[in-house]
Amino acid sequence: MTFVLCGVVSVSHYLVVGAVLFTCGVVCMALKRNALGVLMGIELVLNGANINFVAFGSEYLAGDGRSVLGLDGEVMALFVILLAAAEAAVALAITLNFYNNHATVDVDRADDLHG
């Protein structure tokens, strides 16, 4: 912690944050029965991945002044944000449809296709 405070923020630290967000998102997806909760978990997962992209694409964080991904990292992050927005819109529409049909948003009830 003190290393960080002393100005030694590195790519790895960003990766740790991303890992925490990713794990939280996955747990969120695994635990939430509310479909919107699952959706939020997905957002978290995507955000964790985005942090990694930005970290790898940042020249500021790069140890030798040359980032791993360069501009590509940020472009990827932008696309991920866009796709997340799109995904959120579709997922919400599906959720509403499910709610209309089953009068619930409990994903445990959505098992009509079980084996």
Partner: peptide, 28 residues
Amino acid sequence: LAASLLAVLVQAAFSIESWQKSGQGVAT
């Protein structure tokens, strides 16, 4: 599961030497 996943990811985050070097602090 979360603990194990986190462990794996954090381990991976610190597994590469060059990733742990801090930046130059040069404004970009």
